[in-house]
Design a protein around this nucleic acid. Structure first.
Lengths: 198, 198
DNA sequence: TGTCAACTTGACATCGTGTCAAGTCAATTG
DNA sequence: CAATTGACTTGACACGATGTCAAGTTGACA
């Protein structure tokens, strides 16, 4: 029945997400066990591991109201405000999706589907950067050194999951420090230099 | 005989490095074929894949005179000079080691040895950042907002292989642009803001 | 001539993903 | 009530990659 089917499906996704949060390697059999079904039954719901992970990502977007949080930055009037709001929203979004993002990133080399899924997500994230940069440019608050594309590239790289990983996990920064410093760094890079030097 | 042994060993390492440059996945059998020996013979020279990759990294350090290039930045007198020199040296070093770095990074999750090897390399690279930051601080050229540790964390993250990967490969920046912009970005972040704002 | 080191071939274990076949069990439907 | 259908189970198996093991071959050197 579709009812029970859906129920099992979300149980699988929840189990997968929970396991992925732990940071250790997660096999199909682990997910099955955690979801309380047989390994083979996973394949009744998802054709392969990549699809399962991608579905888990989407499910995560649903339950944590990703769109809403990122949309909030859209109400900003000034570019600088929007930049801050976007960094705040995205920066605090990363830890929530990091588990599944990591798994997807690891599959990238071996699985074309996983690679595409990740690329799409990063393209979506880039749009947020682009919008902030555009607004900065409109306000004449963009460092004249950079075109909008180049500035977007920089911001996009600055806010990458990998960058978060390094500062937060390798360097041991707190989440608050990460967000706060990314705001400062982004401004230092993207806004025109105050003294007119450079 | 040790002579021929060494010869085969370096042939393996050269073959491995050449294959890793291509960016595609590289199996033990690929390396063996490229080196002109049987797959099993690889294990006469290296106990496992991780060790082979680590040896390849070291070999690469030898043939491209890594130490010399990075040491050049040590002759700088001022912190700002040293920062530029280090970014120049490291930034141009990344593309040379990227192939093997990528393979090592991919093994990280599954192989403790690979993880340690990578961590060590990044620790060494961090020392370069630390030295540049220290010299900036000595010259009173470090943004007062940051302690030396924090500034080192930022520079280290800024110059990460992953960051290079994003700007160079995903965004399509030229190597020259990458190095040039990293210098600008590092200065914008690490030096005191010229107008005293912020 | 005999030994030894470097290498070969071929078989095999292990692990994880993914597939296939046959069967259980409960709810739905004619 | 009987037949069907859908969700799931168990068990076996193929595949690709790493790594191991055993039994040769080959060439150099003593």
């Amino acid at each position: 029945m579709s009812r029970k089917n859906e129920h099992t499906r979300t149980r699988i996704l929840k189990a997968a997400l929970a396991l992925l949060e732990s940071g250790t390697a997660v096999r199909m059999s682990d997910i099955a066990r955690a979801a309380g079904i047989s390994r083979q039954a996973l394949y009744l719901h998802f054709p392969n591991r990549a699809d399962l992970l991608i579905a888990a990502t989407r499910y995560l977007d649903e339950i944590s109201d990703t769109d809403t949080k990122l949309a909030a930055s859209r109400s900003a009037r000034r570019g600088t405000e929007r930049l801050d709001a976007y960094i705040e929203a995205w920066g605090n979004h990363i830890p929530e999706v990091y588990g599944v993002a990591r798994a997807l990133l690891a599959m990238r080399d071996s699985d074309a589907e996983a690679a595409t899924a990740w690329t799409n997500r990063m393209a979506a994230m880039r749009e947020g950067c682009e919008a902030a940069v555009w607004m900065l440019a409109r306000d004449r608050d963009l460092n004249p050194r950079y075109g909008e594309d180049q500035a977007t590239d920089l911001l996009w790289t600055l806010l990458s999951v990998r960058g978060w990983e390094l500062l937060r996990l390798e360097c041991g920064w707190s989440q608050e420090a990460y967000v706060a410093e990314m705001k400062v760094v982004a401004r230092a890079v993207l806004l025109p230099p105050p003294g007119g030097r450079d």
